[in-house]
């Protein structure tokens, strides 16, 4: 299956409108508020061999919140599955991307590629969560690549690989964690120095952005840690106990 979905916002009379909302099953987009959209998966997967593309264009001065109604379960199939997400966030625009986690079922072979192109004063919160298999399950393989540029300069480049037990369990990589997650927060935040707690680090990047990086045993704990980090970044100080 090859699906290409797209979403674009426009500024109309000072307000955000969503003139482009093109679903491509299984990537079905539903507008759920004035500037919020949810992804509704209308088929299982992705399955091996699928190629799912989503393009987001957040016009200057507009706001978009994109979530999903359920986690994505990546299943095996003939060949590699791929999810490609590209997003352009214009000057003065705000994007909040908070989908539910990607769960790697046994035997899957998945690639995730995310390309984020930000204007210098764009405000973005971009969360990604990867869960290493369902309960008690050994995960398949996954290679995720994330690239964000700000005003044409590299802001954050990260890759995660899952599915090589000797590396996954390394105390330098994931240790005993079963989930990994990050939230990139671009735009002015008051946090000057890194803050660290159990399984979560809030990291001011070299560019004007902050990365929350978390590890956890399960998806619930992962979300708690990421949200704690996001709150810490926006307050500029540790947001109480995790």
């Amino acid at each position: 299956m090859h699906a290409r979905a797209a979403l674009a916002t426009a500024l109309v009379a000072g307000r955000t409108s969503i003139p482009v909302l093109r679903s491509a099953p299984p990537l079905t987009l539903r507008q759920t508020g004035p500037h919020s959209v949810h992804l509704i998966s209308t088929a299982a997967g992705p399955l091996g061999g699928d190629r799912l593309e989503l393009d987001l264009d957040v016009a200057p001065g507009t706001t978009l919140e994109l979530g999903s109604v359920a986690s994505t379960l990546v299943l095996p199939g003939p060949g590699e599955s791929r999810t490609l997400i590209t997003a352009r966030v214009g000057a003065g625009a705000t994007l909040r991307f908070t989908p539910e986690p990607t769960v790697l079922a046994a035997g899957c072979a998945h690639r995730i590629e995310v390309g984020l192109t930000l204007a210098s004063d764009a405000r973005v919160l971009w969360r990604e969560e990867i869960v290493f298999g369902r309960y008690g399950e050994q995960p398949g393989r996954c290679h995720a690549r994330f690239d964000a540029t700000l005003d044409g300069r590299p802001l954050l480049r990260q890759e995660f690989t899952v599915g090589t037990p000797a590396l996954d369990t390394s105390p330098a990589v994931y240790g005993d964690a079963r989930c990994v997650g990050t939230t990139l927060i671009a735009g002015p935040v008051p946090l000057a120095e890194a803050v660290v707690a159990d399984g979560v680090a809030v990291l001011p990047l070299a560019g004007p952005a902050t990365l929350v990086s978390a590890l956890a045993l399960d998806a619930v704990a992962l979300r708690t840690r990421l949200e704690w980090g996001e709150s810490t970044a926006s307050r500029g100080r540790p947001a109480g106990p995790v």
Binding site: E159, T161, V173, L203, S213
Partner: peptide
């Protein structure tokens, strides 16, 4: 170019 992350190393470095 490669950009492999090591989340546990990030936490260790900041601690």
């Amino acid at each position: 170019l490669p950009a492999h992350s090591a989340p546990a190393l990030d936490v260790l470095a900041e601690r």
